[in-house]
Design a binder for these strands. Sequence first.
DNA 1: GCAGTATGGTATGTATACATATCATATCGG
DNA 2: CCGATATGATATGTATACATACCATACTGC
Lengths: 154, 154
Amino acid sequence: MAKDDRPAVAPRMPGHLIRRLHQVSTRVFGQRLKAAGIDLTPIQFAALDALRAHPGIDQAGLAEAVAKDRATIGGVADRLEQKGLVTRIVSERDRRARELTLSEAGRRILAAAEPVVTALQHEILPGLNEAEYAQFVALAAKAAAAAEEGDTTA
Amino acid sequence: MAKDDRPAVAPRMPGHLIRRLHQVSTRVFGQRLKAAGIDLTPIQFAALDALRAHPGIDQAGLAEAVAKDRATIGGVADRLEQKGLVTRIVSERDRRARELTLSEAGRRILAAAEPVVTALQHEILPGLNEAEYAQFVALAAKAAAAAEEGDTTA
DNA sequence: GCAGTATGGTATGTATACATATCATATCGG
DNA sequence: CCGATATGATATGTATACATACCATACTGC
């Protein structure tokens, strides 16, 4: 036995590469934001960002915008509310729904975080020059858009 | 207020795109493997794959190979051992270390999973043609390699 | 207007992922 | 040989991420 030792195949698959880049991204994000004195995770930042663009959106809408998962967004909304960054009120139009809105503190922390987040994006893809970086973003955006098309989280 | 409504910026950042592709990847992987009657997560598959390439490696080495995090790999190793896919024995050379090896069952499930995993890779990047797919993989591999160079998880 | 169904949220359980602390064992310097 | 330090692993706590099940409320059709 131990006969079929052969190079691992996973490391060359896109799924594996994406997982590793995701780890790099999460780590860089955490380090830079912490260094800037801001306590936000990537998803929390994305949620605040989406909330600024769509004030009063409900959790399902926010899930659609950033995460595709209502259960996860529920937890994210919990933490953002606990930190006082968003307000959560029961919709009058639909008593099942909770409408989310940025608080002043939420607006401030988002404004503080945005330049930091923008600045760290290139660190996520080290070793790529400008042209390669732009190409990666274009390809990733195309794939992500296509994934949402034919999917609808079916 | 609600003055500065403007398009969300996060969706165009590589960090955000990578997170979404990671979600797509995880979902596709889970669906296809489940459909094939195989109960493995992406990391578990990567771990088995690395174990075939490096039999007898310890957990720190496996972490280096697939995940960069010893604590996480500890949990993964727990589950693989519980499923009977790997054996974990205390190293004679270093009594702190646990050497991991594929069991026969581990070898079988890896052999069964590999073609399924290979086949689903293109589904992770829908909407990309062959050339674009190859380009994405090349760029991602370059970035991931660079991230490991200048980093050493310092 | 009521049954059937769809939808918004929450609760629960599993699996990463990582930081930090702690423990056991090696190894190195002197 | 011994103290200082490094390293392998585990324990704990937080935060995604998702499936499944469930509850509350809407909506639809008859």
